[in-house]
């Protein structure tokens, strides 16, 4: 085997997570950006409630299976970006700590027809001080609110970017990721 195939260390990896409510475009965004067909990985985990005596004797503690969206962008030979859609359903919330661990930041997708669907994601990243931006996906019949009005409804500070985009458009979706990364440099 050549040296190229066996570098001293495998490429470094960075992760950005994509969150938001049901059907808001998470899979579409991963698909639009990823160089590989998004992998649909199953996460089969058992949440054991260590340190919580009241829950320790439940028969089958939250054993569940969920499909995850997972995409890849090769930046160069030594750096890769992985995109990863968090499962939208509330009942998978317990997995988020594991899945989000180590992420550079999050893109929270929102649909103005049902803005409240993204509140749990905003609460989650805000409370853990994980950098995030909000990207508004425009659907058929979505009200065209001004971004400052959306920001007010979401109750997030001015330093957090709120952008409009289309998850089906590659260039616009790239800009959304760049917006998040730029936030990390501020």
């Amino acid at each position: 085997m050549t040296a190229l195939q066996h570098p001293e260390v495998p490429p470094q990896s960075a992760k950005i997570v994509i969150s938001g409510g049901f059907g808001v475009g998470k899979t579409t965004l991963v698909d639009t950006i990823s160089e590989i067909t998004p992998v649909r990985t199953e996460a089969n985990m058992t949440a054991a409630s260590i340190g919580h005596d009241d829950r320790q004797h439940l028969p089958d503690k939250n054993k569940t299976t969920v499909a995850l969206d997972f995409g890849r962008v090769t930046i160069d030979e030594t750096l890769r970006l992985y995109l990863f859609g968090t499962p939208g359903q509330d009942r998978f919330g317990f997995m988020w700590d594991y899945l989000v661990n180590g992420a550079l930041g999050a893109v929270i997708l929102a649909d103005t027809r049902r803005l409240s669907d993204c509140y749990p994601a905003i609460d989650y990243y805000e409370s853990r001080r994980i950098p995030f931006i909000v990207a508004i996906n425009q659907f058929e019949g979505s009200p065209q609110h001004r971004l400052d009005q959306v920001r007010m409804a979401l109750n997030i500070p001015g330093r957090i970017p709120v952008v409009r985009f289309d998850a089906r458009d590659r260039d616009v979706s790239k800009e959304v990721l760049i917006e998040l990364l730029s936030l990390l440099l501020r």
């Binding site: 990896s13 930046i75 970006l81 550079l104 930041g105 950098p131 760049i178 990364l181």
Partner: peptide, 18 residues
């Protein structure tokens, strides 16, 4: 894994996505 505090790395990611 990459660290969010690594400015050079974040810049490489931005350039790479562009």
């Amino acid at each position: 894994r990459a660290s969010a505090n690594d400015t050079g790395l974040i810049e490489r990611l931005i350039e790479g996505i562009r």
